[in-house]
Write a protein that binds this DNA or RNA. Structure first.
Length: 441
DNA sequence: TCTGGGGTCCTAGGACCC
DNA sequence: TCTGGGGTCCTAGGACCC
């Protein structure tokens, strides 16, 4: 008998034994010994993958998805002329070099990334780096459809899911059958496989004792990866990572940390609590201290209500408050109408009306105003937003205008005017009428 | 040829009330 | 009259995330 063959048999036997022991242990582990297992699932190149299902002929090519609706509409034309989508010839797809406008890249395929283009880069800049790249407009309704589909697959298997946006979720594996086996790998594999069967899309999963670590773990093996992180993996697998890998540490915090000589999570873990609080404040300092040690006891948020609803738009060219008054006014009214429509469609009313504008130099300001009554009415929003606009300097040219409604409340048949203890303002008492009628009813 | 759009949460100061 | 909390709401800006 060939020795390699023997090795192979021994190895198989050993693997089977280990597996049997693992299964035996998980079957016989009492409920109280269950370990908290939280998964983070992240779709692989979500938008691009959805587009490739539609246009398989683009597979392997440099493709960029992005641009503003307006500018992209002009380019989508060639895509509508023909027969089945998968038969559209490559020459009929719009090219990045033909784009003019202020859009940014939302997603780029790996082939496109080779040229140095990537998310958030301006399309005009990207066009210089990779003019031949194909450009597809962003199609949110389509992505939302796929988003719903993959989330439905998950909740069918594991009901405790936290929605983290269009392509990400957290899942509580702790009490789901298979959720404890191999640290969660068995369940992760089942979910991955079922999502692929049902949608044709792939995803990566990280399973860990909490959300913080699960989020980092899901990035370890992209694409189509599964990573299992246990408490004891902290020093080997988490500490070598850059602090920026912690969800919540962005570019600013990273720069400050680097200024203090802290690059990795391990560096961060060397600092004591008082030092971190001195430098970053009570709350952030204490949070960083825990995060560096892999501690995170946040529960999954299974349902939530929106806090605000807004619409904003960047103009194709900068506009002046006086010179482009008519155009700005029309855009402003349209934004208010859109926000009102969104509120009504989703069944909310709001009390705080706000505007946002961004000047040509990219500096932004906001103004808001809280009304005495909840509203979802376009005219009311337009009036209040108009008052906000008057409180803002308008000498400089504008590049963006936005309208926001906050302090939301679910719209019901009779809770509409549920203003909390309408304050009797000086103006109201001076006129007398408003105050007395409020008291009468 | 710079730099989208839709969100959440935190901070910090001031008003106002107890 | 002076002094001092705490709590809540409102507003503006900013960091961060998807």
């Amino acid at each position: 008998m060939h020795p390699d063959f023997l090795d192979c048999r021994v190895a198989t036997l050993l693997a089977m034994t280990i597996r049997t022991v693992t299964i035996y242990e998980s079957l016989n582990r009492p409920m109280s010994e269950k370990i908290r297992r939280i998964a983070h699932l992240d779709m692989d190149a979500f938008y691009a993958s959805v587009e490739l299902l539609r246009y398989p002929q683009l597979s392997g090519l440099p493709v960029v998805i992005g641009g503003t609706r307006r500018a992209a509409d002009a380019l989508i034309d060639p895509l509508q002329q023909e027969k089945p989508l998968h038969r559209i010839a490559l020459d009929d797809f719009p090219r990045l070099k033909d784009y003019t406008g202020r859009g940014v890249i939302t997603t780029a395929t790996y082939a496109a990334r080779q040229f140095g283009v990537g998310s958030a880069m301006g399309l005009m800049k990207a066009a210089r780096l990779c003019p031949q790249a194909l450009l597809l407009p962003v199609d949110f309704p389509q992505y939302r459809k796929y988003s719903k589909a993959f989330k439905a697959v998950i909740t069918d298997i594991a009901p405790l899911m936290e929605d983290r946006g269009i392509d990400e979720v957290y899942i509580d594996f702790t009490d789901v059958p298979g959720g404890q086996r191999e640290g969660g790998r068995v369940l992760a594999r089942l979910i991955q496989k079922t999502i692929f069967e049902q949608t044709g899309l792939s995803c990566s999963v990280g399973v860990a004792p909490n959300k913080l670590l699960a989020k980092m773990a899901s990035e370890f093996n992209k694409p189509k990866g599964i990573s299992i992180v246990l408490e004891q993996d902290l020093q080997d697998r988490i500490w070598p990572l850059a602090c920026r890998k912690i969800n919540g540490i962005g570019p600013k915090a990273e720069a400050r940390l680097q200024g203090l000589g802290i690059r990795t999570i391990g560096d961060l873990a060397q600092k004591d609590l008082d030092w971190l609080i001195d430098h970053f404040g009570q709350k952030t300092g204490a949070w960083m201290f825990d995060a560096a040690r892999g501690r995170d006891d946040r529960p999954l948020v299974l349902e939530s209500e929106p806090v605000s609803i807004s619409r904003e738009t960047t103009f194709e060219r900068d506009l002046h408050a006086q010179r482009d008054r008519a155009e700005l006014g029309a855009i402003f009214t349209r934004l208010c109408q859109q926000v009102a429509d969104d509120l009504q469609r989703k069944g909310y009313v709001g009390k705080t009306i706000g505007i946002k504008l961004r000047y040509a130099d990219f500096k932004s300001v906001t103004r808001d105003q809280t009304l005495e009554r909840y509203t979802a009415d376009a005219k009311t929003i337009r009036h209040s937003a108009g008052l906000c606009l008057k409180r803002v300097p308008l000498q400089q040219a504008l590049r963006l205008l936005g309208v926001r409604v906050g302090s939301l409340h679910r719209a019901g048949p009779d809770l509409q005017p549920k203003a909390p203890a309408p304050p009797v303002s000086d103006a109201a008492s001076a006129t007398g009428v408003a105050a007395s009628s409020d008291q009468l009813f």
